[in-house]
Structures are given as C-alpha cells and as structure tokens.
Design a protein around this nucleic acid. Structure first.
Lengths: 121, 121
DNA sequence: ACATTAGTAAACCATTTGGTTTAATACAGC
DNA sequence: GCTGTATTAAACCAAATGGTTTACTAATGT
C-alpha cells in the first residue's frame, strides 16, 4: 500500500529550507530590531550592537543568522564589517504570506460560489 | 534587592511577543504545510496528520503552536477537534514585512532627497 | 458493556537556540 | 613595533524545540 509517491519526501525542498531560515530569522525581536535599524542605513557591528543590552558576540551571532537568511549582506571595509539590508528576501517572505492569503481567499471564494450554486440549483 | 518596579522589564512589548510567536510558527515547514492544508478547508487533527511522516502527538504539538500564534482556531465537535485557519494573524505578518519594506524604501527616498537637496544648495 | 476512534498528557531525548565569557585575529593610529 | 579598536572563534550553559513512546481521557459504534 501507499506506493512511494512524490510526497514520500525524498527531496529536502530547498524552498522550504529557505523559508525556514527566513521566518526563523524574523522570529526574534532583536533580529527584527536590527533589520529596522539597518533600514535607516548601513552600519558596522559595534554600532548596531550599541542599543542592545547584550554582548557584542551575541549581536554578531544574530547578524550571522540574518546573513544566513539572506536578509543582510556584509562588506568588510578595513576592520569594520559594514552590514546592509538585503530586501530581495524580505520580498520572499511577503510573497509567501500573500500567496497563502490569496489561496485562502480563493478557497473561500470557491466555497461561496459552491454554496451559491447549490442554493441556486 | 533591586526593588521590583514595573519598569524592570522595560516593556514586554506585547507586539514583539506576538510577532515572535507568529514568525516562529511560520518558521517550520510542517506548520506551513499544515496552514496550506487548512487553506483548503477545516479538518480534524488526525486528518491533518495523515500526510506527514510523523506521530500524531507531534502534529498535535505543531497545531498547538499554530493556535498559540493565533493562526489556527479549534472547535471541539464531539471527539474531533475541527481546526480552521485564522487569517487575521497572517495579515499581521504581512503587514510587518510590508511596513519594513516601506520603511526601507522610504529611507532610500529620503536619502535621495537629501542628496538632491545638498547638490542643489 | 466493550472495543474503537480522536485526541491530549506526560516523560523522555537529542539538537538547536540565545546568551555568556574568555581568547584570538586583523586592521589602524601613534 | 606597540596599543587600541572591530570583530570573530571557541567553549560553555540553560532553556526551548521537535521529535519519540507510552499512557490516559473522552466520545462513538456495535
């Protein structure tokens, strides 16, 4: 029974991986705050860490998570690592959510149509 | 010591808390798949668990996470827990991302204006 | 009444997370 | 070449995560 279908899960689905990373990166207030801060302009790690009540290495780690998710890029200029917001990926998150919403809405519409049709006939 | 003032925890910022939960809930492919499945219609826990290669309690836990994030609601009908998608919260995620994007874009525009102004004067 | 079905609760486990502190590395300024 | 500054690396830790299994509760069907 249940002959190995495509959903048996042979492929790690790189899109899933990316979304996992993306949403995980966004699921921390410190990281979100870092993004908000970066939206006001590029900055080095120390400058970014300044407003937070936590050690520099901690912020450094958060930045690496954001980098891993593709939300932040880094350019080493001398001894300062200039971090910059990378919006492409933020778009991806938005797209996923919007897609879901549309899908959901679509289902509702279909249901409405279905109900309407039944009520008609 | 350290008299426990109300401001000891500056402000738990309930919005941050909600966003933490929300994005965390979305940061797992199983949970995202559950949402996608629910977008096609309400379902009980067992039905929802069926396509996944994991135990029922595991899926049950995932559903509780989604519920905690406000993305899924549950109505107990006899012995089946009918789960339903809750879109309000999905909206919240989308709003946050969009706001960020706008902010970022706004900063870019401001920078452009600033540069322009300086070049003018 | 009894077995079945739907689902949770509880105990457990490995891994990841988010933080720490204490080095280590690399560049800049004197 | 030294000193200080910017940042990562490494080792460590407590708590959370994602999963398991093995009960347990509660509704359904016969």
């Amino acid at each position: 029974m249940h002959a190995a279908t495509a959903t048996d899960k042979p492929s790690p689905e790189p899109e899933d991986e990316r979304l996992d990373q993306l949403f995980h990166a966004l699921a921390d207030r410190t990281r979100r705050a870092l993004l908000t801060r970066l939206a006001q302009g590029d900055a080095g790690v120390t400058a970014l860490a300044e407003p937070f009540a936590m050690s520099l290495p901690a912020v450094s780690k958060h930045l690496r998570v954001l980098e891993g998710a593709g939300l932040v890029s880094r350019t080493v200029e001398g001894r300062v690592h200039r971090c910059a917001l990378e919006t492409e990926r933020l778009w991806e998150a938005e797209q996923w959510v919007e897609e879901q919403r549309r899908f959901w809405q679509g289902s509702l519409d279909s249901l409405a149509e279905y109900v309407e049709a039944r009520e008609d006939g």
